[in-house]
Structures are given as C-alpha cells and as structure tokens.
Write a protein that binds this DNA or RNA. Structure first.
Lengths: 353, 353
DNA sequence: CAAAAAATGATTGGCGTATATCAATACGGC
DNA sequence: GCCGTATTGATATACGCCAATCATTTTTTG
C-alpha cells in the first residue's frame, strides 16, 4: 500500500489538485469549506508530505553559517571540527555550512560579523552568543530576512533567536558540586575554585550553581573565593602550585573555566595525596589527565552532540517542520572509565560496529 | 552555483548520461577507462548524489522492525515509546517501524520471531539480542534476503549483524565502581551488590567491571558476593531491609539489575546514615529516588539516544551510505542535579527553546 | 576478416511536489 | 439578471535521478 499522494487527497476530498495545493501550502483564496474538506481527507488518508519530492521540486538548499569565536581554544577546535564533519556528511542533502570566526567574546566583533551576515543570503545561522543590546539591531535584520537564528553554547537575547542549544551552566556547576560533595563522604573539606573571568556569564553561572549546592547540602565543606585565571594555563600552574604547598587543608579543586593544562601540571608535580579535582570540557589535556589519574572528573557539554543538534534544529526551522524527539542536553560526567573514544581516532566505519 | 547533476558529470567526462548512470549505480558492463573518466569528473565537479531526487525516483521506503522483549519492564517501556515517537516523526521520510514483542530473554521465542521476519519483506531490523547458536539460521536467512540487521541494547552473534548499538556493560560496571570508590574518600568500606541473574550477560559484565576496578584501585573496599534478585522488587525490598538492619558496616549498595523500587522502599524506611547507592537505568522510580535523595547515582544507557541512532544506522545501511559522525555511546552518570526533563512531559516544541 | 561479444549512446517515462497560467464557475450585491 | 470578485478546475513544466529500451559503435575472438 503506497502512501497517498496529493492527487489521492484531491480525489478523496472531491476537489481539484489545485485546490489541495492551495490548502496544503496555504496560499489563500480558498473557501473555508474547501479547507475543511481537504483537511478531513488528509486525516482520513493519513497523508504525509513526501519531503524527498518536495525538496526536489523546490530545489531546497540549506545555506547555514556558524559564528564561532576565533582562536586555538581546544574546546572551539572541537566545535569547528564537528561542524566540518557534519557539513561534509550532509552535503548530499544540499546542506552547506560556513564557519565564520569572530574575535573571541568581543561584542563589537560579533556585532560586525552579524551585520555582514545580512547581505549573505543565508537560510540559517547558529551563533555562539553574547547577551548584549548591541546585537539586537543586526539580529532583527536577520529575522527580517527570514533567516533562522539559534544560540549555540552561549545564548543570545532570547527574543532574537528561535532556539538555544547548549547546557544550563548553573546545572553544570551544581553537578560539579554534587560530585565534590560525594567525594568528601561526610568529612569536612575546603574547596578552591578557579574562574576565567567574572564577566563570562557561563563561568559565573557555574560558580553560582556550585556554591548553591555546597551551601545547602554539604555545609561541612567550605568554598574559598575563586582565583581569577583569565583561562591562562600559566596562571593556573603558579596558583595551583602555591596552593598545594601553602594550603595543605585544601580537599578539592574546581576549575570553572579553561587553562587546565596548568592545573594538571601542578598536580602532576605532587601526585600523592592530591585534592579531588573537577574540571570542565573533555579535550586532549583533560582526557589525558583523567586517564592518568591526575584529575577525577570532567564535566562536559558534548559539543559534538550540540553541533549535530544545531544542524537538525536549523533544518527543521527552515523547513518549518516540527522537531524530532530530542533528549535534553545535560552536562555529562566523565570519569576515566566512561570516556568515549578519542574523536581524532574516529572513522565513521569504526563506530558502526 | 547550483550543484552539478549527473548530466553535468556526463558532459565533463565526455561520455553519455547512460554510461555515467552505469558507473554511479555500478550496473556493470562498463570499460575500466570509462569508469576512470567518470570518477575523475565526479571528483573534479564535486558531484554529490541528490538523495531527495534518488529517493523519490526509486520510491524508497524503509520498512523497519524492532524486536523488543515483552512485558511491562520500565526500561523497555521507555524503549518502545521512543521507537513510536521517532517512527512517527520519520513517516515523512517514508519510514515505518513495527515493534515486535518477544517473550523476554527466551531463545526459543526470539528464534521463532526471527523466523517469522523472513517472510515479512523488511528492509532493516533492530534486535535486542542474545548470544545463541540457535539464532544463526534465521539470522542468516535474513541476511540472505538483504535485510539490514543490527543488535540493540544487547548484542547478537557479531558475524550476523552489521552493527551493535548499546553500551559496553563492563564499562558501565567500571563506572559504577569508580563512583563508589570516590564516595569512600579513602575510607574502608563494604559494598553489597545485587544481580538479577547470573545468566544475564549484561548483569555479569557489569559485575565483572565493577569488581575489577574496586580490586585494583580501591583495595580498602570489600565487595560482598552478589544477592540474586530475579529483578524482583519484593526480593530487593526484603534483602535490603535485612541488610540494613543486620549489617551496619555496609557502606554502599550497587544494584546491577532492575527491581529498584524495592531497594528504594527499604532505603526510605531508614533514611538516616544510609549507604551510598548506585543503580542502573533512569526510569520513574529511580528518578524520583534520586530527586528525593534516597539514592545517589543512576548509571543510564540513554535508550532514547540508542533508538534514534538505530534508525539512523539502519537507514544508512539500507541506503549503503556511510554514517554521520556519531559519538560513542557511553554509560551516562546521573546525579539529582543533571537529570534531563521527564520524557513524559516532553513536547517537541518545549525542547526547541 | 567476419562474427560474436562488449560497451556506449540516445532517449523515455515515471517518482510526488511546487508553481504558474488560464479558463470556468460560483457567489455577492444591486 | 448583470457585473465584479472570489473561488475552483484543468493542465503543464520542472526538479534530478532511476530504470529500462533499443540502436549503434567498439572491441574481442576464432
């Protein structure tokens, strides 16, 4: 039993193909009663638009762009890789994705890049965002042109994007705190936190979530004021060194931001009797440190999953379809035992078996 | 610049459309040098087959079947729900999925169901498998008919399936052990484990992984011999009760199998000073227990992700395409802070924002 | 060198939808 | 009943590929 076509619907509804088309693609100028007849026929036959035929006919192409911070940050390298991978795989579905690099976390740079986008004839954009009023004008211009806009990893002003794909950083901080709490087994403790900058919203949120949970559920643990690191490994190295020698009562370290190679190096220098260590984002450094037992936990936001999802959501928005069932994105806890294979060693075939 | 079509390739290669078609869909009867010319032209132009057009033309439909154990097990309810959800969403791409219920974990039942499948004119099957020689004949018959076969959640004899989608249960057990180790903070301890049955391969593997890590990295923790539960909540209830009153030195519980409602109830009866508790699979019971602080950790295999992936992989196998970039499936650690929204409350729209 | 075999070319009719055009009909107000 | 507008019908073409047919050319073989 082949699935019904529009002609079948027309026949069942007792109207012409043209009328069915007018209803289905709501082109207007149709009598209410015809609309009703068509809808009934659609329901009765269980008609579903054949997307292959539709895409072919309307010569659908999906021109996507991703605005990603510039620089050699390990995390965003992972992001860029995954974008390229997915785009290459989806080229058969006429999807193209351009990566536009933006000066990291500078509103002015993002604003300029966004303004350029308007002239680019795109169908959808995913943006590693910032919360700033200065972005509103270019974002409004994009919306005006009918470009689908989503926030990625870091959100945009909500009224200017159709979706946000990323984790809740308060939840990430709470998760880290829970694990630190568990690792104290009821004993008293002292946690040193590190942040890149207090301006970074994600850092602030993680710290907030962390402190909330410790304060509420683990009152016997003290959280020291965070050390500012600018995500600089050198700063983390020296600060951690100082801490380990000078403050022996430190029972846990939690780095909210980046620059973990410095922290790991300092830990490696003492090894014995080190504090419990939690960091964010699974990249080469943190993976290795986890495997070698220099740190205990990595909280990861699964950028690969986020990117795949960004493509899915953008295409659904562009086609005006509803989304497939997608589970919530939550911070993922990695220990040395449940690490996924290194994506650099990933061939798609190897994953199939 | 519109993407090149087969006619463009023909022109560039200096051969006819028919020859290009013969090469692309390797129908044979083509001279080696023609093949080379076509391949060069494909590479030069960057030709990619338009899957929309191809699927339309060959009237592609994907008739899939999922063989899932019968019964009201909360985990497999989750699985069935997700299959229905994804199938309904993919109906626009002419995907149909039938759920075939099989007597739980009985080789005979699975064998019979498999034999039926052969007459069903399917394109792909995902099977919650068993390792048994008795399955080889029907599986070989399926392969003979060109049906794509994958193992789901629990593997099949590897030579009879093209892929396995599920977690490594040894890894799951190791992960649980790591967390139990962390939660002891170097103190001595005593862990009681529970298994459904020793025959169940997944249970045995989890236990094995668990014991490996404890023995190697946490020698101060003792693992007691597992209690057999048949995954029956009543057994877990009484056994846990007895344990909590009779053996106060128990510092952790790890249930490898199902039946957690009984365990949770027993824990709820004492609450104060309870042991550290780790269980598997996020379902209604375990979620609630986690939120209420009756247990500490749930190791989940993300059946929703597994199901989505099963559809993706089956379609890729049927189309003989290569797979999109997919991250490894690893056991996921849930604490009360990083729980995803309850899927029962999931509307697809809500997830978009 | 002729005959057989292999390879190639030329062409066609779908697949189901989108989109456009033009004619035909219905409906409303007066 | 007439006119103008709103609605409907009939029909055609294109999208890119698949699958098939038949004629023609090239290559191989004895």
């Amino acid at each position: 039993m082949p699935s019904p076509t529009l002609s079948d619907v027309a026949q069942a509804a007792g109207v012409s193909y043209a009328t069915v088309d007018r209803v289905i693609n709501n082109r207007g100028n149709v009598a209410a009663k015809s609309i009703a007849k068509v809808n009934e026929a659609v329901a009765a036959l269980g008609y579903v638009r054949n997307v292959a035929a539709a895409n072919l006919s309307r010569k659908r192409v999906y021109r996507l762009a991703f605005l990603i911070p510039k620089g050699s940050n390990a995390f965003f390298n992972r992001v860029r890789d995954q974008i390229a991978r997915v785009a290459s795989h989806q080229s058969a579905e006429r999807v193209t994705a351009e990566i536009i690099e933006v000066s990291a976390f500078a509103v002015a740079g993002l604003e300029a890049s966004l303004s350029d986008l308007v002239h680019q004839d795109l169908d959808g954009v995913a943006i590693v965002g910032l919360q700033s009023e200065r972005l509103e004008k270019p974002l409004a211009a994009l919306r005006e042109k009918g470009v689908a806009v989503i926030g990625l990893v870091s959100d945009l002003p909500p009224e200017f994007r159709s979706a946000y794909i990323g984790i809740d950083n308060i939840v990430a901080g709470r998760t880290a705190a829970r694990m630190v709490g568990v690792a104290h087994a009821g004993q008293t403790g002292m946690v040193q936190t590190f942040v890149g900058s207090t301006d970074a919203r994600d850092h602030a949120e993680r710290l907030q979530g962390f402190c909330e949970v410790i304060a509420k559920d683990y009152p016997q643990i003290t959280v020291r004021d965070p050390i500012m690191t600018k995500d600089d490994p050198a700063v983390l190295l020296s600060q951690t060194r100082g801490l380990l020698s000078g403050t022996p009562d430190t029972t846990a370290l939690y780095n909210v931001g980046a620059g973990n190679s410095g922290l790991v190096q300092a830990i490696g220098e003492i090894r014995a009797n080190r504090p419990f260590c939690v960091v964010h984002e699974l990249v080469a450094h943190s993976r290795q440190a986890l495997q070698e037992g220099l740190i205990d936990l990595v909280i990861d936001q699964r950028p690969d999953v986020e990117i795949s999802r960004a493509f899915t959501v953008l295409r659904a928005l562009i086609d005006d379809r509803d989304l497939p069932p997608l589970a919530d994105l939550m911070p993922t806890i990695y220990v040395r035992d449940n690490l996924p294979a290194d994506p650099l060693a990933n061939t798609t075939e190897a994953q199939a078996t």
